[in-house]
Nucleic acid binder design. Structure first.
Lengths: 241, 241
DNA sequence: GAGATGCTTCGGTTACGATCGAAGTATGAA
DNA sequence: TTCATACTTCGATCGTAACCGAAGCATCTC
């Protein structure tokens, strides 16, 4: 009837609550089994199986068979970006499934956004890197400076190795909780991995929130000293431009 | 059950074919009446009315009463950006509602993307501006150079007036047909308006395609001489990064 | 006022898809 | 081989929402 890409198909894929739960759970970035996803979605295994088949047919999910387990992940980081975009939009409209439970504060503080750090700490990290002159902001783009490359090298990040990937090194990702930018791209991923490797932080079970050890938190805050609210006076996002 | 923004709600809003048609029609940027949208969606007026009410309640649409007509538009350009993002994703997955009709070529050549120029001509325009040094590319961000400001001023674009808007001046927008960037933001809008004002081009009825007059086409191609395929050797987007 | 147009609301039908129980297949463990 | 676990397929049920006809408001024209 009409020309153009079929947005209704992926809309309806995301539109089912059970499937939305599955996708949200996979935004945590790690591969999950069908059983785990069924629990996350709040449906039985059979139902989840049907949903997973549809999501995979729709190109949103990829699966990897391993023994008698079947691990699912988001198909690629474009899916993660798409979902984060929708989440940001939904949050800005106030379409929050508001259950201000005890987990909320932890999520706002530090959580994983597909594969990089988001939340308060994510924003703080980017702001600090910009303030320190490690990253320069060009409109909506981010660039790692030579000084930044040296600085990150001293922390233990091999930037030249990251450059060889096809994935952009720096990308800014708008946070639905903070509505401010944090660092995505291969560098964002590398930094978060680095924190995990050093034992500063670890993932929490069945949640997207990230737990910092006391020592790790101290180190992180010292390394990225710019408080949220300092730095650039980024304008509030207005509802009606 | 879960934390975070409710992506299922807007997913299901977009997921219905009739509503998707309505939204796609409104991507044309102009305000349309309920009757027109009903025709575009292929449903009766009553059904369309119900859909429009839902879309408005969901914050995707805004309406403006004018006499006995009710004009609908996308709520703001964030909605347009969201939809274009989904379209781009859908196109990359091959979820095309493939009806390679006669209108397709016109759409690929030049069409409106919410309020700016997209398609072949949109890509050509941006490429040419970059090649001419009017716009510099920084990662994913675009910046208008001083030289570019002067250049555009000579065409009849008042850049300083655009700067006063809260909307970003330059933004790159990824095209679902070309899979290459074209110019969005207030500057993109101003350029397209400029072409309309000069009579180089006009919108076509009930379509997102843009019709160039022979004279206008000549002028446009002379002003933006870089062919698609020239310029920067932007790598193909790969499916699996 | 009367009539026409644009749109909404109401009521009833229908169809699709989400759901789960039960049975079937595959892989691993004992 | 036997049993257990992980998952899929089948079949049937059920609820919801999309849909349209008809009637009801609202606004404009005459």
């Amino acid at each position: 009837m009409k020309e153009g890409p079929d947005i209704a198909q992926i809309g309806s894929l995301i539109g089912d609550p059970a499937r939305a739960n599955i996708l949200t759970a996979l935004m945590g970035g790690r591969a999950l089994t069908a059983t785990e996803l069924a629990a996350a979605a709040g449906v039985t295994l059979q139902t989840a199986s049907a949903h997973l088949a549809k999501l995979e047919a729709g190109g949103l999910l990829a699966q990897r068979k391993q023994g008698r387990h079947r691990y699912f992940t988001l198909a690629d980081d474009r899916v993660g970006k798409l979902l984060e975009g929708i989440m940001g939009f939904a949050a800005s409209r106030g379409h929050l499934r508001h259950r201000p439970g005890p987990k909320e504060p932890a999520l706002r503080k530090a959580r994983i956004c597909y594969d990089h750090l988001a939340g308060d700490y994510g924003v703080r990290m980017l702001d600090s890197l910009v303030e320190a002159g490690a990253i320069s902001v060009m409109g909506e783009g981010l660039n790692l400076t030579a000084q930044g490359e040296k600085h990150l090298g001293s922390i233990g990040i091999d930037v030249s190795g990251l450059r060889s990937s096809r994935r952009p090194l720096c990308r800014s990702c708008l946070d639905w909780s903070e509505r401010r930018a944090h660092l995505a791209g291969s560098l964002g991923k590398a930094l978060l991995s680095n924190f995990f490797d050093k034992g500063w932080a670890r993932r929490t079970e069945n949640s997207r929130s990230i737990f910092f050890t006391p020592e790790g938190e101290r180190r992180f805050l010292a390394l990225f000293p710019i408080e949220i609210g300092d730095g650039k006076p980024e304008p509030e996002l207005s509802e009606k431009p």
